[in-house]
């Protein structure tokens, strides 16, 4: 086994070169390059953590804004409902008033029309008497050739109308 057979003649050289090489590795790579690589990893981890925190904050803010938006929407909806309710009540009251006014107007018109009707009827009745008197005078004159006094004719017509 050369590892043991040669140990006396080669240990110094192996130790010497091992210490040189391992020293170079330790100071040149372990102490110089490793921290830079580790620093890169650390910076990346920190960046990811920061970005995640930022995203979390943004999410919280979005939630906040959404909640505010919802509150405002609910508020607006109740306000709109209330306004609609008020408008309905007001329009109902208005309609009632207007219906009443229209009713009164119609009643007045009906009364007026009735009165006019009565007048017209009376006038018409009076007209009929006169016509009847003239007709009676005329009939009498044609049949008997005698002239009847208007007063007599009127009296006769009146009595007949009263009876008939």
């Amino acid at each position: 086994m050369p590892q043991i057979a040669q140990i006396v003649s080669t240990y110094a050289s192996q130790i010497f070169w091992l210490l040189i090489v391992f020293g170079l590795i330790y100071f040149g790579i372990g102490k110089a390059m490793l921290p830079k690589v580790a620093g890169t990893v650390e910076a990346r981890d920190r960046k990811i953590a920061d970005d995640l925190a930022e995203a979390e904050r943004a999410r919280a803010r979005a939630d906040e804004i959404e909640a505010a938006y919802r509150a405002r929407i609910a508020e607006a909806r109740t306000a709109a409902l209330k306004a609609a309710q008020n408008a309905k009540v007001a329009s109902a009251a208005d309609a009632e008033v207007r219906v009443k006014a229209a009713d009164a107007d119609l009643a007045a018109q009906a009364a007026k029309a009735e009165a006019e009707l009565a007048t017209a009827q009376a006038k018409a009745l009076a007209g009929i008497e006169e016509v009847a008197v003239e007709a009676a005078q005329d009939i009498v004159a044609r049949i008997s050739g005698r002239t009847v006094e208007k007063a007599a004719a009127t009296g006769a017509v009146k009595s007949v109308l009263a009876n008939g």
Binding site: S9, T10, A12, S13, Q14, F16, W17, V21, L24
Partner: peptide, 17 residues
């Protein structure tokens, strides 16, 4: 007083480095 010749062992140490 110790011989520190550059051996094949040293060469492969350097190659490792």
């Amino acid at each position: 007083g110790h011989n520190v010749a550059f051996t094949n062992s040293a060469l492969w140490m350097v190659l490792t480095l």
